[in-house]
């Protein structure tokens, strides 16, 4: 094996290993390996710092950067589970699912999936926490996914039940058990605008305020997370809207999508045509249909 590759693997193993509760580099790793002897073997000491201390600077740097990014992406989850549990969850997730993307934007891409397999981190508020993670990830996706050119109004007017309509890549549909949309707006407006990639170092871990969440009553809601004038919005949808849009996104024809929208619907027959007209008009005016 190349010396360079081997050295980088060894340094990465130390740098990406979780810190202690006191945010220091542990003497011993979980697998029993000694960071002390690894540091001594790889890093030169100087007149002020030992090999261990020099390696520790990078170990801390790695985690502070990841914490700060993850906390910025999921302030709503932090508000629900509280600082302490959030910390434990964040450390465990980032240890098990290290970044595999050049962009920190994708850090939370596996979080929902991972949490479903590690519900012990969100016990007592499992559904609420999962709903929050889903809306927070949908927000990230809606913010910077592509926007495609709109479908001409003439083309929209000439569709029939066998036609297929394509929707904006930034549009995300969610079926949730709690009305977390209001909650997330509150938490986000207090936590300010999002940060971005940079190449500087941090002195210490940045602490952000934790907003505690009052008891939220469960309520089934359907949401479209979308973008307008470069801002992300949450639009409440009716059950029929949600099913119709979901079917269109899944590639069903308009006819099939309409059938699935009214499956088990309580909407009276005579209100269905006006409902569809309004729905399609609204979505077209929001710019959701693309060529």
């Amino acid at each position: 094996m190349s010396g360079l590759l081997e050295l980088q693997r060894r340094v990465a193993a130390a740098v990406m290993h979780p810190l202690t509760r006191q945010e220091t580099m542990p003497r011993r790793r979980k697998d029993g390996a000694s960071n002390q002897s690894e540091a001594d073997a790889i890093i030169k000491p100087n007149d002020r710092l030992s090999s261990f201390e020099r390696l520790e600077i990078y170990n801390r740097q790695y985690w502070f950067r990841l914490y700060s990014c993850f906390e910025e992406d999921f302030p709503g989850l932090m508000a629900i589970v509280g600082r302490k549990k959030f910390d434990a969850l964040m450390r465990a997730y980032l240890t098990e699912i290290p970044s595999t993307s050049f962009s920190l934007r994708n850090l939370g891409s596996q979080l929902e999936h991972w949490l479903r397999e590690h519900v012990e981190f969100i016990e007592a508020r499992t559904e609420l926490a999962l709903d929050m993670v889903r809306i927070e990830w949908a927000h990230i996706e809606a913010f910077d996914s592509a926007a495609e050119p709109l479908l001409d109004p003439d083309d929209l007017a000439s569709v029939n039940e066998d036609s297929h309509l394509h929707l904006q890549p930034y549009l995300r549909l969610l079926k949730l058990h709690y009305p977390v949309d209001d909650l997330i707006i509150e938490v986000r407006s207090e936590s300010g605008s999002s940060d971005s990639s940079s190449n500087n170092a941090s002195v210490a871990r940045k602490r952000r305020t934790v907003h505690r969440v009052a008891q939220l009553e469960p309520e089934d809601i359907h949401l479209a997370v979308h973008r307008h004038d470069n801002a992300v919005y949450y639009k409440q949808l009716g059950r029929e809207d949600y099913q119709l849009l979901s079917a269109l996104i899944a590639g069903e024809s308009i006819g099939t999508a309409i059938d699935s929208a009214f499956e088990g619907s309580a909407l009276p027959e005579d209100e269905r045509v006006p409902f569809l007209q309004t729905a399609f008009q609204t979505w077209a005016s929001l710019g959701w249909f693309i060529k």
């Binding site: 360079l4 980088q8 693997r9 990465a12 990406m16 790695y62 290290p98 050049f102």
Partner: peptide
């Protein structure tokens, strides 16, 4: 390394 990103600018060994 091996597809995992540290998102840090780590120093090179000067070899």
């Amino acid at each position: 390394v091996d597809g995992r990103y540290t998102h840090d600018l780590l120093p090179m060994p000067y070899t």
